[in-house]
């Protein structure tokens, strides 16, 4: 059952990588990177359940934070303005 969950998430990651490599505009690539960041949080949650240890949730929380901040910074850059506002 856990193997099936990992297979689902791996297929999701490869679809995101396809979109990152093929996206016609820069915005498409950034969408792929954003979704890939949330998929990594899923991986950490399933490893927590599988191994029954709790420190993987720390990685999940900080990964979600950093992925969000990175997406905001790149979208401000695409918008063509400065970083403050």
């Amino acid at each position: 059952m856990i193997t099936l969950l990992f297979v689902f998430l791996l297929v999701c990651s490869f679809m995101c990588l396809y979109r990152i490599s093929r996206g016609p505009t820069p915005a498409d690539r950034v969408v792929g990177i954003d979704i890939l960041g949330i998929i990594v949080v899923n991986f950490c949650a399933i490893v927590t359940f599988w191994r029954n240890v709790d420190f993987y949730m720390n990685i999940a929380l900080s990964w979600a934070l950093l992925s969000f901040i990175g997406t905001l910074a790149v979208s401000k850059f695409l918008e063509g303005k400065g970083f403050d506002e």
Binding site: A27, A64, L65, F68, S75, L78, E79
Partner: peptide
Amino acid sequence: FILITAPTAAHALSRASIKS
């Protein structure tokens, strides 16, 4: 945290792609 940040990131990205 994810319920707050994921729609915000989507909104910022769509606005950026409109502007660009």
